[in-house]
Amino acid sequence: MVTIRQKLVTASQAVKITNGKNNAKKYIVVHETDNTNIGADADAHARLQVNGNSRQASWHWQVDDKEAVQSFEHYWECWGAGTYIGNKQGIQVEICVNSDGNYLKAVQNAASLIAKIIKDENIALQNIVQHNYFSGKNCPRNIRAGKVPWTQFINMVKNAKNIQNPPVDTKKYRILTGTYSTLKAAESATKVMKTTFGWLVHIEQDGKNYRIKTGTFTGINAAKNAEIKIKNAKLAQVTYIKDA
């Protein structure tokens, strides 16, 4: 059972990295992110798109071992499939491969999400295709290598369990780290939080030391997950969750 939520790219940003709103929604195109960095999960890739992706690329969904996050409504023609037809007729789904995640669980979650999409959009099962189908790119790489055979993945879609919507928690939180003895150390950790996690962060001076304060997270679970990402990436030994 996969939890789904939206973190939609604004229309003003979307028009810069899509072909508009006329997606025929004939195919589901399955991708993998190829980003194995610690913390490069669904939330990080969703934030990347919201904050303005430096690549000329876009996709509708990103899925990891915990959740599926939607960046674009399905009517947008995202730049993901590598060809005009693939973009114009495809709903693009990225499976995260971050090294601190459970890849097999992420694949299961992707299957659950796709089962919902084909029902919602009335898409034929045989029109679930790999990125390779349109562009010839070796993507989704792990599935194509047999880590989860494609026939098994399609069977997972057929047998997928229901989607779960998360409880609504609108309270805002921030993460505050312990102190760093040098500005360089704080800046190094900040760079990872910005570029890999897609967070808004800034450095505060605390006497002769420095600490990092993040932007806001909605809901205590999101804040706790952010705290875990910091510790998994060994960016700070001490962290605090504070009300925003």
Rank of each mutant, 00 (worst) to 15 (best):
T33K: 07
K119M: 06
S58Q: 10
A46V: 06
A68D: 09
I85S: 14
A57N: 10
K161T: 14
W199P: 04
D243S: 15
H202Q: 08
T177W: 10
G219Q: 06
H131T: 09
G198N: 03
S58L: 08
R55F: 13
G215Y: 01
T179V: 10
M1G: 08
A223D: 05
L125E: 09
K184W: 01
T3R: 12
D120Y: 05
P166G: 11
E67D: 07
Q62L: 08
A223L: 11
S12M: 13
D206T: 07
F217K: 06
G82Y: 10
F134G: 04
N53V: 09
T195N: 11
S12A: 13
G146H: 00
K26S: 13
T190M: 13
E32F: 10
V201Q: 08
M193C: 11
C78K: 02
I91Y: 13
G178Y: 06
Q237K: 14
D206A: 10
A40K: 12
E67S: 12
W61L: 07
T179W: 02
K234E: 15
I212H: 04
E227F: 03
N53T: 00
N37H: 05
K172W: 03
Q108A: 11
Q130I: 01
D43L: 14
I38G: 07
V29Q: 03
G178D: 05
A236P: 10
L183F: 08
D43G: 09
N225P: 05
K16H: 14
Q108I: 00
G198K: 07
K7P: 00
I85H: 07
T179Q: 03
G20E: 08
G101V: 10
I38L: 13
K119F: 06
